[in-house]
Amino acid sequence: MLSEVIATRYVTPLREGGSLPGIVEADDLGTYVMKFTGAGQGRKTLVAEVICGRLAQRLGLRVPRLVQMQLDPVIGLGEPDQEVQELLKASGGLNLGMDYLPGSIGFDPLAYQVDPVEAGRVVWFDALINNVDRSWRNPNMLVWHGDLWLIDHGATMIWHHNWPTAAAAAAKPYNASDHVLAPVGPDIAAAAAALAPLVTEELLTEVAADVPDEWLVDEPGFDSTDALRRAYVEALLPRAATIHERISLEAEVKAPAGPPGWLTDHLPEWPHKTHKKKSDSE
Score class of each variant (00 low, 15 high):
G97T: 03
V211A: 01
R239N: 06
S177E: 13
D81N: 13
S248L: 03
I158Y: 04
P259D: 09
T45Y: 03
A168L: 10
G261L: 14
G53K: 01
E206W: 00
V24T: 15
S104E: 10
G78D: 12
A127I: 06
W124I: 06
I158F: 07
D265H: 06
I243D: 09
M98S: 15
Y32W: 14
L142K: 10
Q85I: 03
A170H: 01
V233L: 13
L263R: 06
M157G: 00
L198C: 05
D187L: 02
A90S: 05
P109T: 03
V122E: 15
P102C: 05
G40K: 15
T12H: 10
A111V: 07
G60I: 06
T242S: 14
W159F: 14
I6Q: 13
T31K: 10
P139Q: 14
V217K: 07
A168E: 14
T200N: 09
G40D: 15
G17A: 02
A111K: 15
P109N: 06
T264Y: 10
R15H: 10
T205C: 01
R229Q: 13
Y174Q: 00
L101G: 12
V24W: 15
W270A: 08
P80K: 00
G38R: 05
A182L: 02
T225Q: 08
A127D: 11
K35C: 08
L198V: 01
V63Q: 06
V117D: 15
M141S: 11
T205S: 12
P268L: 08
D99N: 04
V74R: 11
T200Q: 07
E219M: 12
L59T: 06
H272S: 11
S19Y: 05
V122L: 14
D126P: 11
L181T: 02
G93E: 05
D126I: 07
E234I: 05
R229M: 08
R9V: 06
V50S: 08
M157E: 01
Y100I: 03
V132K: 14
V132N: 08
G185P: 12
G120A: 09
M1C: 04
E83T: 09
L55D: 04
T264K: 11
V67K: 11
A255Y: 02
L29I: 00
L96S: 02
P164T: 04
W262T: 03
G92W: 08
V5T: 13
V123C: 14
T205V: 01
A209G: 02
T156S: 11
W215V: 01
W149Y: 15
D99H: 09
H161Q: 12
G106V: 14
H179F: 03
P220A: 08
W149H: 13
G221T: 07
Y32R: 08
Y174T: 00
V24H: 14
R229P: 09
V217I: 07
L249T: 06
G92S: 09
N138L: 12
G93A: 06
H272N: 11
P256M: 08
E202F: 00
V233N: 12
D81A: 10
P109D: 03
T12M: 09
T264Q: 10
L87S: 05
M98E: 15
P212F: 08
